[in-house]
Every structure is written in structure tokens, then in C-alpha cells.
């Protein structure tokens, strides 16, 4: 027993991994200071890191205060721009398909090419969670109540323009629920605020 203890004492301190450093230390001192617990902040940064490097999202940022009320959020949330559109409402999909079909017919008959459905990506809210957490409807509703329909635009004007274009189909709030397990696996589910019919996959 004593020998094991002494071995542990002798162990050299291991240098922290770059990800560990990234998650643990906020790059800029947040103005909110101590509104959120450190583990909540590091969770948000872990999700941000995962989105950025595994799913190629851009324009990612951590929000600590509600854009609606400027009150502190229940926990830090992330917002960002996916590489492709994350969610297409089934009604919008029907419209897009009709539009693409019209365009195909308008093209010359000799031209090759099938339906060309194009959707611009939209900024999304991401709610970072851990798998071993317990949630209630009250807390979930509290998160939605603090959010805007679309995350506030980043400093790039292009994103702001997209936001204006994307709005007509976006009638209910939605959040990307990111759930991280202890082995750092992250799964993503779209949560809509309200009764939203499923996509026709």
C-alpha cells in the first residue's frame, strides 16, 4: 500500500493536452465573470471545439447572456453557422423541390442535370449538455424563453443578410441539443419549441 502511494507521489506532472487547455481557459476574460460555473463554461467550449473541428462549423461563439433580455442565460450557449443547412422544414422542402423542378424545365432540354435543390445554411443555437444530467421541462422551456428565433449575427455582414433571407420558414424556435458523454462523444438532436411535424426522410 505504502509503495503504491510513494509511486504516485513520485509521478511527474503530465503536460496538459492542447484540447484540455483550450477547454479549461477562456481565451478572453468574459465580461460576465462569475455568472456561470467553470464546468458549464468548459462544456460549452468543448462543444464549440467539436463543431469547429469535426463538423466544420464556422462563426462559432459562446453566449453567456440572453439576446432578448440581457439576463444571464441558464448556462452558456453556443451559436454558429453549419457548412450546409442543418434543418429544412418539410413544407419548405416541398417548395424548394417545386422551384428546382421549374428551373430544370426552364433549362434547355439538351442540358444534363437533375433537380438542383439549393439551401443556404442558417445560424443555429446549440445547447451544450452532458449525458448524465437530469433535465426538466421547466428548464428546457427556460432556455427557449431566453433565446431569439435566430442567433444574433456575427460581425460579418454576409451572415446578417442570410439571416434576413432565411426567416420566412423559421416560425418556431429551435435549438441543437448537443449531448456529450464522458468519452467525449457528442450527439446532436434538433429540439423545436412547439408541435413541428417531422421531416420526410
Amino acid at each position: 500500500m505504502t509503495s503504491i502511494l510513494s509511486q504516485a507521489d513520485m509521478k511527474q506532472p503530465i503536460a496538459r493536452a492542447p484540447l484540455q487547455t483550450f477547454v479549461a481557459v477562456p481565451t478572453a476574460p468574459s465580461p460576465s465573470g462569475g455568472t456561470h460555473l467553470p464546468h458549464e463554461q468548459s462544456l460549452a467550449r468543448q462543444i464549440l471545439h467539436n463543431l469547429q473541428h469535426q463538423h466544420y462549423w464556422t462563426g462559432l461563439q459562446v453566449h453567456t447572456h440572453s439576446p432578448l433580455t440581457d439576463e444571464p442565460l441558464p448556462r452558456p450557449l453556443v451559436s454558429g453557422l453549419p457548412p450546409q443547412r442543418l434543418y429544412v422544414h418539410p413544407d419548405e422542402q416541398v417548395e424548394l423541390l417545386k422551384k428546382a423542378d421549374r428551373e430544370r424545365k426552364a433549362r434547355a432540354a439538351g442540358e444534363a442535370g437533375g433537380l438542383d435543390v439549393r439551401t443556404e445554411p442558417e445560424r443555429e443555437w446549440i445547447l451544450p449538455t452532458r449525458l448524465n444530467e437530469k433535465w426538466t421541462l421547466r428548464r428546457l422551456a427556460g432556455v427557449f424563453d431566453a433565446l431569439t428565433m435566430v442567433p444574433p449575427a456575427t460581425e460579418t455582414p454576409a451572415a446578417a443578410a442570410e439571416e434576413g433571407l432565411a426567416s420566412p420558414w423559421r416560425t418556431t424556435k429551435r435549438v441543437l441539443l448537443a449531448t456529450a458523454d464522458t468519452d467525449s462523444t457528442v450527439v446532436y438532436y434538433i429540439v423545436h419549441d412547439g408541435v413541428v411535424k417531422p421531416r420526410q426522410n
Binding site: 463538423h55 421541462l137 438532436y189 434538433i190 429540439v191 423545436h192 419549441d193 412547439g194 408541435v195 421531416r199
Partner: peptide, 11 residues
């Protein structure tokens, strides 16, 4: 009454 609809995000 509030309801939340959940779908897989496919990412």
C-alpha cells in the same frame, strides 16, 4: 401546455 419536438440532427 408546452411541447418540444425532437429529431435527429444527422450530424
Amino acid at each position: 401546455v408546452r411541447a418540444f419536438s425532437i429529431e435527429w440532427a444527422a450530424i
